[in-house]
Amino acid sequence: MSFFETYGDRLMTAIQVHLFYVLISVAIGFVVALILGILLSRIPRYAKIIMPILSIFQTIPGIVFIGILFLYLGMIPATVITALAVYSIFPVLKNTYTGLLDVKPEYIEAAKGCGMSPLQTLFEVELPLASPSIITGLRMSTIYTVSWAVLAAMIGLGGLGEFIYIGIASNNDQLILAGAIPSAIMAIILSLLIDVIRRVVVPKGLRSVK
């Protein structure tokens, strides 16, 4: 109780900031990844070159990337959001691209035979059939971003990483757990919410597809 009396308000603020970073970053990353995935699925020959190039961003250590952005953007939330959004793109992009390529050609031909335009075929046939893969990418991206958001504290922009880093520096297990446990709980809750979205968005016959 004494811990929460001392750090309770600060902890709640850290949770709110952390959740804000995650939700905004994932939302931006998802939209960008979905658009890129659709575009690349139309040019698979070039996508084999472009995808590995885009994946390079995943190999850059998070603290290095945030540090570089910090030099140019400064200590503002946009620095963290930009970095996290970039990192959140690739899991969704890869799964969107793969999901769309896996749609059987006969379904697309059947849609054309019904008089659907390419845009109608995309939104009414291809994306629904690819939705299990896309939602899986969204889940991966969200869980990863919850852990990556800890890095915001490294440039003084709050979040649950603040408790973790202070706890490590001061050898205080309570502070470390105060940052780590809410992060883990947040990842679990967001994953469960995505499962709800999956049941709503994914066609019933495809819900068992991982």
Rank of each mutant, 00 (worst) to 15 (best):
G161C: 09
A169T: 11
Y144I: 01
I56R: 15
G67F: 03
I164V: 11
T96P: 05
L122K: 03
G137N: 02
D102I: 00
L23G: 03
A85E: 09
A14S: 10
Y107E: 00
I15M: 09
A27T: 14
A78V: 13
F4N: 03
L36D: 01
P118R: 14
P105Q: 05
V31Y: 03
L23N: 03
V103D: 00
M186H: 01
A130N: 00
F3K: 03
K48R: 14
F65E: 12
R198E: 15
P105G: 06
D195I: 05
P128R: 08
M154C: 02
M116A: 10
Y107W: 07
L71V: 14
Y87A: 03
G99Q: 00
T6K: 13
S191H: 11
G156A: 07
F4L: 12
I35N: 13
R139S: 04
S208P: 00
G67A: 06
Y46C: 10
A78G: 07
E126I: 02
A27W: 07
A169R: 15
L84I: 08
P91F: 10
S170V: 04
A111G: 08
I166G: 01
G62T: 09
L19A: 07
G158L: 03
I68Q: 04
I176S: 01
L138E: 06
M140Q: 15
T136F: 10
F4M: 09
P91G: 06
Y72D: 05
P128A: 02
A14N: 08
K210E: 08
L119A: 14
S131V: 03
N171C: 11
P91N: 14
Q16R: 14
S25H: 07
I81R: 04
S88K: 12
F30N: 03
A178C: 07
I66C: 01
L192I: 11
G159L: 01
Y46K: 14
N95T: 10
V200T: 14
P182S: 13
S25M: 05
Y87P: 08
T136K: 09
P132N: 08
T98D: 15
Y107T: 00
C114T: 12
S141P: 08
T98S: 15
G158T: 01
V32R: 15
F4W: 11
A27R: 04
A169Q: 15
P118N: 13
Y7F: 07
I181P: 04
K210R: 08
L23C: 09
L127Y: 04
G156P: 08
V26L: 07
P182A: 10
S131I: 02
P44M: 05
K204S: 06
L69F: 14
R139T: 05
I50G: 09
